[in-house]
Amino acid sequence: MILRALRAEMLKLWKRPATWVTVGLFTLITFADVLDDYRDALKDPEVSFFLPEAWSRILGEEVMIGFIFASVLVILLVAAEFSWRTARQNVIDGLSKTQWYWAKVLLLPVVAALFLVLRVVVGGSFALAGTDLSSGRAVMGGPQFAALGGMYLTGLGYACLALFVSAAVRSSGPAMAVWFAWFAFGERLLVGGLGSLFQGLRPALKWAPVSTFNRLNDYLRYDPEALRQAVEWATRHDRPVPQVEALGPAVAGTALWIAALLLTGWWSYRRRDL
């Protein structure tokens, strides 16, 4: 059942022009971004762009751009099924509503991975070109895998939020608008507003979904050596010293949000007529 559902979702993903448009656009943007880093490295002897050091730049905050693309693609794939009424037809053809919803959930890890892998491949190949492979140092190690794992969780969080909005709004354009409004300013406005009204809520408000996801999107928390260098650099240049918090609560918070979004999304989808 799960395999069948996944195969159908993959067929739709593969044949959908929007997939290739988002992938192509993101590849271009990533390429331009990494090219910029590479040029900096050529100009400034203090900045290096070879592996494994370059991972701190490749897996920097910009990874989030990939997750924005992933969210857009999830919305295009899921919300459109309501406009085309294929969400309805799938159920008429014999899928239960539960099966339909969880088939969409299967799509999320694939889409999130797609954009993270693209970033790694495009950025990594650039840096690999400047890397002296004969030095015998591994181009990728524990800290990078940890970072990829954490960031993948961030991507899943974004994708789940996109699915939640798609299933609630049921139309691509408006769903995109709602998702983007929440991501760009909605969450901050709401947190700011609630925080000034109820002072006591402030610690909890720091755990709003997007800001929770973004906590895992900081390379320095996975790579002690990179953190040491960043601190040293900041001290030398009289800049604010980067701080990292414990990983556990951020992972737990993200996992909880993912579960909450998937379950409430399912509940609200099931309650309504198709």
């Binding site: 069948r4 159908a8 067929l11 739709k12 085309w84 009424r85 294929t86 037809q89 014999g94």
Partner: peptide, 28 residues
């Protein structure tokens, strides 16, 4: 049973055959 409701509901970007592949997947 097999049924249609209102308009034919299919994925516009898929071919007729691919659309039936989706339905066939649901119906085993």
């Amino acid at each position: 049973m097999g049924a249609t409701l209102e308009t034919p509901n299919f994925y516009p970007y898929l071919s007729g055959r691919d659309n039936l592949r989706i339905v066939a997947g649901v119906k085993h």
